[in-house]
C-alpha cells in the first residue's frame, strides 16, 4: 500500500520538474522557431510590409510621370475628395456591400434550410448551387452581362408576361448596383449555404424535438431555436460576405467598369482607374481608404455579432 502511495508521488515529481523546465526561459523554449518562421516571414513580406508601404505611398506624390516620389501630406485625399471620387466610391462601396451581404445571407440561409438533410436529391442541388463558386468571377461577369442585356434572355423571359420589356439592368442607375450585387450573390452563395448547412446540422436534434413537444410551430422552431444556435455560422457568413463585398472588383469591372457614370464605382474600381492613369499615389490613398473602411466597419460588426453569440 505504501509502495502504491509512494510510486505515484515519485512519478508525479518527474513530470512536474519537466513542466517547470519547459516553462522556464531557456534554450528549449526556442524550438517553436523553425515552425513559426516561414509563416512569420511570409506574413511580413506579403502583408505587413506592403501594408506599411501602402500607408507611406498614400501620402506621397507618386506618379508614372516622374522618377521622384515626394511626400505630399494629405494632397492625394484632398484631390480625390475635390473630384468627388472619394465620397462617391465610398458610398457606393458600402451600399453595395450591405445589399450583397443581406441578399447573400437571406438566400443562402433559405437554401440551407431547404437542403439541410443529406439525401441524393439534396446532394445534387448542393453541388449545383456550389458550381458558380468554381467559375472565374470575370467569366461570371461576362455571362451575366449578356443575360442582363436589354435584348437578353432575362428580359425575354419577363417579356412573356410583360411584352416588350427591355429594361437595361446594368444601364439604369437605379438598378445597376442591385444587379451587380445579385451577380456577386449568385457567385458566392454556394459557400455560405454550405456554412449554414453545417451550422444547422450541428444543432442537437433533441432541442428541436423538445421545442416541437412544447408545441412550437415551424417558425418558432426556426426563430427561437435554430437561428439562435446558428450564431457562429451567422457571424462567419455575415462578416465574410460583408468584408468580401467591401473589396469587390472583378465582377463589377467585367460588367459595368463602375458605370454608368459612377453608379457602380466601388473603391477598387476607382483605384484601378487611378492606377491605369499613372497616378499611383492616388491609388494608394484609395487602397488605404479601403483598409480603413474594413477596420472601421468590420471590427464593430464582428464585436457585435460575437457578443450576440454569447448573449444568445
Amino acid at each position: 500500500m505504501t509502495s502504491t502511495t509512494e510510486a505515484p508521488a515519485g512519478r508525479s515529481e518527474a513530470p512536474a520538474s519537466s513542466v517547470r523546465r519547459r516553462l522556464r526561459p531557456g534554450r528549449a523554449d526556442r524550438r517553436w522557431w523553425p515552425f513559426a518562421a516561414p509563416t512569420i516571414v511570409l506574413t511580413v513580406a506579403f502583408f505587413i510590409l506592403p501594408f506599411l508601404l501602402n500607408i507611406y505611398f498614400a501620402f506621397t506624390q507618386w506618379t508614372g510621370f516622374s522618377s521622384v516620389i515626394a511626400p505630399n501630406g494629405l494632397d492625394n485625399f484632398r484631390n480625390l475628395a475635390d473630384s468627388g471620387v472619394l465620397w462617391t466610391a465610398t458610398r457606393v462601396t458600402v451600399t453595395y456591400a450591405v445589399i450583397a451581404m443581406l441578399l447573400q445571407n437571406v438566400i443562402s440561409l433559405g437554401l440551407a434550410l431547404l437542403m439541410q438533410n443529406t439525401s441524393p436529391v439534396n446532394s445534387f442541388f448542393r453541388a449545383l448551387f456550389f458550381l458558380p463558386v468554381l467559375i472565374s468571377p470575370l467569366a461570371a461577369g461576362y455571362i451575366w452581362s449578356a443575360i442582363l442585356e436589354p435584348q437578353g434572355p432575362l428580359n425575354a423571359v419577363i417579356g412573356l408576361v410583360s411584352p416588350g420589356f427591355d429594361h437595361a439592368w446594368l444601364g439604369d442607375t437605379r438598378t445597376v448596383l442591385a444587379s451587380v450585387a445579385f451577380i456577386d450573390v449568385w457567385k458566392w452563395s454556394g459557400i455560405v449555404t454550405l456554412v449554414y448547412i453545417a451550422g444547422l446540422n450541428a444543432i442537437p436534434q433533441s432541442l428541436v424535438e423538445a421545442a416541437r413537444i412544447d408545441g412550437a410551430g415551424a417558425w418558432k422552431i426556426f426563430w427561437l431555436v435554430k437561428f439562435r444556435l446558428l450564431a457562429p455560422a451567422f457571424t462567419f457568413s455575415v462578416v465574410v460576405s460583408f468584408l468580401g463585398a467591401l473589396n469587390a472588383f472583378d465582377i463589377i469591372q467585367a460588367t459595368t467598369r463602375g458605370g454608368p457614370g459612377s453608379a457602380s464605382l466601388v473603391l477598387n474600381v476607382a483605384l484601378y482607374r487611378q492606377y491605369a492613369g499613372g497616378f499611383f499615389g492616388n491609388a494608394s490613398a484609395i487602397s488605404l481608404t479601403i483598409a480603413a473602411l474594413v477596420v472601421v466597419l468590420g471590427v464593430p460588426l464582428i464585436a457585435a455579432l460575437r457578443r450576440r453569440e454569447l448573449e444568445g
Binding site: 444601364g171 442607375t173 458605370g259 454608368p260 457614370g261 453608379a263 482607374r273 497616378f279
Partner: peptide
C-alpha cells in the same frame, strides 16, 4: 465614364464639364 453618366441621366453637360476641369487640373 463621364459620357456613360450623361447617357444614363446621372450627369448633365455642365456637371461633366466641371468634373472634366477638376480631373484635368489635378492630373
Amino acid at each position: 465614364n463621364y459620357m456613360t453618366g450623361l447617357l444614363s441621366g446621372a450627369e448633365t453637360p455642365q456637371s461633366v464639364a466641371e468634373q472634366s476641369q477638376t480631373a484635368f487640373e489635378q492630373a
